[in-house]
Structure formats: C-alpha cells, structure tokens
C-alpha cells in the first residue's frame, strides 16, 4: 500500500480511511486465530527437542536443555523412513492410477456422444454417496478372498476406486470446456479422436489433472481406516506400514518416552505440511468444486 503511484493515491487514501478504525482489531483476531491453529503443532515440534524428564517436570516450558537426540534417533531410524516410503508408494500409486483411469473415463463422458453417457456420469456421481466407511468391512473380506489382504495393492486399488467419483466429476466439465472447434481443426489436420486426446486435450487439461491428483494424494496420504483394516491386521512388518499407522504404533509402543513420540509425530507432520502448503489453493478450490458437484 505504501508504494501506490500518484494516480491511485486518492483511491488508496480513501481505502485507508475506510478501514483504519477496525484494522488493529482485525489483526488481533487474525493473530489469535493463527495462534490457536499453529500453537499445538509448535508445541509438538518444540517438545521433540526436550527430554522426557524435562517434559514431565515442566510440561508447558521451553526445552531446558535443548536436546537433539530424539530427532536424530527418529530421523536416522529405518522404521521412520520405511513408513515414509510406504506412504509415498501408496499415495503415489493411488494418484497415478486414479488420474489415468479417471481421465480416460472422463474423456469418454465429456467428448463422445453415445447412449448411456448420462447414465455413466450419474453412476460415478452417485459414488460420492458411497463413503469408504460403509464399504470397509466387506471390502476387507473381499480383499482377503483375492489374496490382497495385508498388501499395498489392497490399499491402492480400493483407494483408486473411491477417488474416482471426485476425479471424474471435476474432470468432465474441464474436458468439455475445450471448444469443439479445436477438435474440428485437429480432425481436418488429420488427427484421430485419440490423437486429439493426446496432443491437445491432455496438455490443455493439465490444471484439472493437477487438482484431482493433489486431492487423491491428500486422501491417500492421510488415510487411516483402510490401512488399519487391510495392513495392520496383515503380516507386513511395522517398518513398512504407512505413516498414519506407523505413528500410532510407535506412540503405543513408546508411550512412556514422550519426547521420542513428539519427535516422531513432528517428523511425520513435515512431508505432508510441505507438500500441502504448496498446494493450498488447489486443495481448497478442488474440494469446493468436488463437493459442489
């Protein structure tokens, strides 16, 4: 605001006058809200630098002394990195799978004209009414029959299936918004419909793909119920459980060592936070879009 040019100076002055009276109050509210949001997270982070004895003696204080052993122990433990790797594999595969399968189906619904097109769309849209929670128990039994219980595929495949409705509902309007003239032009230049898909539609729909990809990644990375039912009751060793499971397991196992649990928890927060803070706008935009649809 201080770098306004002379021509807009008058407008800026008016703006200042209009907002001045309440500005301090608004900042106080903003600060309070931000503090409540971030405070507990900070406590966990800082707590990871304290010894358990220090934590027990003075739970609300600052580290005295600062110790790095908790963080170093966790950050160098194969168990933590195994959890991270497992989460990356699960979320990555789910994302790739749902983007490919969803894009293909959305392409047909958006750009082909055939009987049953409406029905197909309605079918996927109705999927929004089928939450994972409802399907969880039979799904577990089904996966057992298929021999997928206790495996990553047992989490990835249902993860893709349950992310499909959101993906398709976001992508269909996106693909449809690309003008028919472009397709005409491509066809005149000798492109088939599939060629048009690869060379024109795909590059143009990148923002939509990024949005659905991020949403699928978030859901899978943070998912707990499915891994709890499919992986924690299987034979996979704990080092290879995804993060949410791994963190709960660690906190149960070392419940006496608060400092270590805090360090494990804070390290588990970091990857998600870095990734998701970068993608904040797309997550909010995508979720509103998805739910509105």
């Amino acid at each position: 605001m201080s770098t306004m040019t002379a021509s807009t100076g008058e407008a800026a002055a008016r703006e200042r006058r209009r907002f001045d009276w309440s500005q301090p109050f608004v900042y106080v509210v903003a600060l309070a809200v931000a503090a409540v949001a971030i405070g507990p997270v900070l406590y966990v982070f800082v707590g990871g630098f304290r010894t358990t004895a220090d934590l027990n003696a003075n739970p609300a204080g600052l580290p005295d002394p600062w110790v790095f052993t908790n963080w170093i122990t966790v950050a160098t433990s194969p168990r933590f990195w195994g959890n991270v790797t497992a989460s990356l594999i699960l979320a990555g595969s789910t994302t790739v799978g749902v983007v490919i399968a969803g894009l293909m189906a959305a392409f047909v619904i958006a750009r082909y004209n055939f009987r049953g097109r409406e029905g197909l769309y309605t079918l996927f849209a109705a999927g929004l009414m089928f939450p994972l929670t409802v399907a969880a128990l039979p799904l577990t039994l089904l996966l057992r029959t298929m021999g997928l219980h206790g495996t990553y595929l047992g989490v990835i495949i249902p993860g893709i299936a349950f992310a499909l409705p959101t993906t398709i509902i976001i992508l269909v309007p996106f693909l449809r918004a690309i003008p028919d003239e472009l397709e005409e032009a491509a066809r005149i230049d000798g492109a088939t419909r599939v060629g048009f898909f690869w060379r024109i539609l795909l590059p143009l729909s990148k923002p939509g793909l990024v949005t659905v990809g991020i949403l699928a990644f978030v859901a899978s990375w943070n998912g707990y119920l499915l891994p709890l039912l499919v992986i924690s009751t299987g034979t996979l060793p704990q080092e290879w459980w995804p993060l949410p499971l791994g963190v709960t397991q660690f906190s149960t196992q070392y419940s006496q060592d608060t400092g270590a649990v805090l360090a494990y928890t804070s390290l588990a927060m970091i990857p998600a936070m870095v990734f998701f803070l970068l993608a904040e706008k797309r997550i909010v935009g995508g979720l509103t879009g998805a739910v509105k649809g």
Binding site: I38, Y224, L243, T248, A268, A272, L277, E280
Partner: peptide, 13 residues
C-alpha cells in the same frame, strides 16, 4: 497458510 496447517495434517497425527 497458518490456518490451513491443522487441516492438512492427517487426522490420526
């Protein structure tokens, strides 16, 4: 960004 932090954390964590 700050108020978005709690939302991006896994519910379990």
């Amino acid at each position: 960004l700050l108020i978005f932090v709690p939302y991006v954390l896994a519910e379990v964590i």
